[in-house]
Design a binder for these strands. Structure first.
Lengths: 339, 339
DNA sequence: CGCTACTGCCCAATCGTTTGGGACAATCGT
DNA sequence: ACGATTGTCCCAAACGATTGGGCAGTAGCG
């Protein structure tokens, strides 16, 4: 009988003693591949062991397993900020996929600060993660190169950098879509709120937008900003000060766009009528805003799941190609004066 | 010399061999309390060991440590949805505090579904967490009682249930604040969007509001809804169908409030002028909305950190008292027709 | 000088798994 | 009938850390 039915959780040994076999046999039966199992014990022994395992409510001790196998099945995820719904959604995708692969994940905020990125990464490493997902890659800087040089398996998500494997949205194309839309509406005097200068998302979206306009022979002023409402607000104020005033503003992120709407209103102008505003990511809020926001939809959840899967293949020793998802323009009242 | 300078990470043994002492000595020096250290080795040995530790870039193997000590220093956190900025912010607080206490955390979504709550909790337990933080407590149901009966250390955050230790906002008072505000503005015909019927947050906020109005001799219709924009939108449509029509709506959550703003607009009414709308949580967006939203501020981040600290004291064998934070009304244009 | 009390270490067991290598019988092929 | 094969298991050594209990040598004490 099990020595300790109540006190401590069942171990391989408890089962082994109950079933009258060796712990190695139990281990092979409970965890081996089907063929291993067959080789490890007879039909009846296998059944008996399995029965005892459920009866004793056996759960393998992950620490023991990790210690022995030198694999933690743990993935660290770094994001600028979890309270940014975009990153939270991407993380949900990562976590979903990880669960399906039997991996555990944990997130940490880096606040887009290089020092924190380093510190958090070291922390993750000291927790012996098998790999990392960076949602906060900076396109400048050498941090990721150093990590790669140390042979740490990782992938990027949302932002890309260097030629490290990444899963992103085709941000350049997304910016182009907005430009196309604006041009169709006849906007010739426009501005773009470009986000942080180190994030490929903002940079690409801006570039796609600007390039498209340039093809139409129009130069577009861009101003960088934080990715939040306050950042967007301030940036929009700047743009609105220009003369002649822009009739449309593209913010590379929904929150910045909301801030821009606020700035337009504060300037005594009617958002959507006097100044069209478009955002990016098609956050759940965009559709429900008092003035519904035109935005570019990016598959955030899916990007997260694909990133995790890419990481799995990296862990498998492969060197997978980066992936880029197609964005989709969702037109709403904030760019439709007539509506 | 270390047998393997490059290949594998340094262990106590590597250091022991380098310094010419036993691993037990190294262990005591590196991890013991100051007095232990003094008893374990001479001044010079201690220095030598410490020196080797940094030189070899030693990081304790958490799996070995957890296996031996039967303590994982891991905390599981359950939330309805991480892409809800309220919960994400609370989690950030939890994570911050955990880091300060040398604990690691990981989050999981339960989507407020009992089956997921159970499954995720079991998962956390099988990962051998030291304790849990539930951000998704249901006030009905017996799940938490069962967990408590199993002696699993946990605390609740954001919502309370039964008399399990919890860290919440004084939601009842928060609801009262809004009622007070509405009454001062002269609203006699009002409605409340109450959120999910199993969440103490919504229930308390509604109760505080309704009770306050009842004291003024006015009955308030309440309608439950999901905590998101769509839920708020639908609920507001219902309320707006009533005759006479309410002149003010209290949504127990900012997202529901935003949905309500949308519904008001869709009904051909002017939000803030024809129908005042107030929310709850004072999400960063509230202030930046085209029509800034009156909301009740709750200290989300702080609630998270306090919850973790409460859990720490539970882990220390104590039975701490629940904590309730004071909310604060932030009045903005959505309830100020003249503004 | 004999006894105790430190000081400064080391030994060895233990946590729960995994895994290479046998051991011992029964069965098979020839 | 004899060696080879196969089916069933067991042994024992890790993985890296913690921790109770030694055991020398030196110092202090009467």
């Amino acid at each position: 009988m099990a020595r300790q039915d109540r006190k401590r959780p069942a171990t391989l040994r408890t089962i082994a003693e109950s079933a009258g076999v060796d712990v190695s046999t139990v281990s092979r039966v409970l965890n081996g591949a089907p063929e291993d199992v067959a080789r490890a014990a007879s039909r009846e022994t296998v059944d008996a062991i399995r029965e005892w395992a459920v009866r004793l409510d056996y759960r393998p001790n992950p620490h023991a397993k990790s210690l022995r196998t030198a694999r933690s099945n743990l993935i660290g995820v770094l994001v600028p900020r979890l309270s940014d719904v975009v990153l939270a959604t991407i993380y949900e995708g990562v976590e979903d996929a990880a669960a399906r692969h039997g991996l555990a994940t944990f997130v940490m905020n880096s606040y887009d600060r290089p020092a924190e990125q380093r510190a958090r990464t070291e922390l993750a490493l000291s927790r012996r993660v098998d790999g990392l997902v960076f949602g906060d890659a900076h396109s400048d800087g050498t941090f990721l190169d150093e990590i790669a040089a140390r042979r740490v398996p990782f992938v990027l998500v949302s932002r890309h950098a260097g030629d490290h494997p990444s899963v992103t949205c085709d941000d350049y194309r997304g910016g182009g879509l907005v430009a196309e839309h604006f041009l169709q509406l006849g906007h010739e005097r426009v501005g773009v709120i470009a986000g942080e200068p180190f994030a490929s998302t903002g940079l690409d979206r801006m570039a796609g937008f600007v390039d498209h306009y340039r093809e139409a022979g129009i130069d577009v002023p861009a101003v960088h900003s934080a990715f939040d409402t306050t950042g967007g607000h301030k940036a929009a104020e700047n743009l609105l000060r220009q003369r002649p005033r822009p009739t449309a503003i593209f913010a590379v992120n929904d929150f910045a766009a909301i801030g821009a709407l606020g700035a337009v209103r504060d300037a005594g102008l009617r958002p959507g009528e006097d100044v069209a505003v478009a955002g990016f990511n098609d956050t759940p809020l965009a559709a429900e805003l008092p003035l519904p926001l035109t935005s570019v939809r990016s598959p955030m959840h899916e990007m997260g799941t694909r990133a995790l899967e890419l990481l799995v293949s990296v862990l498998g020793g492969q060197k997978p190609a980066s992936e880029r998802f197609d964005p989709e323009l969702v037109v709403r009242a904030s760019t439709l004066p007539g509506a």
